[in-house]
Amino acid sequence: MGGHARAAVFLGDGTYEVREFPIPAPPAGGAVLKVEAVGMCGSDVMQFHGQSHVPGEASPVIPGHEIVGRLIDVTPEAAANWGVAEGDRVCVDEIVKCGRCASCLAGGTGLCANLQLYGYTMGPDHDGGLWGGYGEYLRLLPNTHVMKAPDGLTAAELTVFEPLANALNWVTSVRVGPGDVVVVQGPGHQGLLCAAAALACGASQVIVTGTGADSLRLKTATALGAHEVIDIEAEDVVTRVGELTGGRMASVVMDLTPVTASVRTALDLTGMAGARIALAGLKHFTPVDGLLTDLITLKNINVQGCAGSTPGSMEQAVRLLADRPEIARTMAGTHVSLDTIEHGIALLERRAAGEDAVHVSLVHAG
Rank of each mutant, 00 (worst) to 15 (best):
D339C: 08
C194L: 11
V360N: 00
G129W: 00
H364K: 01
G152F: 00
C41T: 03
V160P: 04
G2M: 05
I327F: 05
R89W: 10
A332P: 08
L321S: 07
V92Y: 00
E326H: 13
P63G: 03
L11T: 04
P76N: 11
V237K: 00
L292Y: 14
V9K: 03
A275N: 01
L338V: 09
T154I: 01
G186I: 03
P163E: 00
A317P: 02
G29F: 04
G132W: 00
L321H: 00
L362G: 02
G110S: 15
H364L: 11
N300R: 14
G99C: 04
H65I: 08
S43W: 00
R329D: 04
T15S: 15
A37Q: 08
L295I: 09
I62F: 00
V318C: 08
H364E: 07
A213C: 03
M272I: 07
R248K: 13
H189R: 10
L71Q: 05
D214G: 08
G133T: 05
D268N: 11
G14S: 13
G133Y: 01
E157R: 00
T310K: 03
T340W: 03
A226H: 13
G87V: 14
G69K: 10
G202H: 14
S337I: 02
V171Q: 04
V360F: 01
L320K: 06
G108Y: 05
T15R: 15
G99F: 08
T209A: 14
E17W: 02
A280P: 01
L218W: 12
A346M: 13
G202M: 08
H4V: 13
M331P: 05
L115S: 14
D151K: 13
A58P: 02
L298I: 09
D88Y: 01
A167E: 01
G128R: 12
A317M: 07
G42D: 08
L320V: 11
I301L: 15
F161G: 00
H4W: 08
G344E: 13
A195L: 11
D294P: 06
A113Y: 08
L348Q: 14
Q190Y: 12
D13H: 06
E315M: 08
V253P: 04
G177I: 03
P178R: 11
F48R: 02
G39C: 04
D180L: 02
M249E: 06
G39E: 02
E235P: 04
G354M: 03
G305I: 00
G152P: 02
A365V: 14
M249D: 02
V54A: 05
C194T: 15
T239H: 14
D323P: 07
G56C: 11
Y118T: 01
C112Q: 10
N169E: 14
Y134F: 15
Q304S: 10
G42E: 13
C101P: 04
L338S: 14
V229I: 14
D151Q: 14
D214F: 01
N143P: 01
A250N: 10
D289N: 12
G123N: 09
V358Y: 02
G50H: 09
C98L: 05
R70L: 02
H343W: 12
T310L: 07
V206A: 11
R6W: 08
V176L: 13
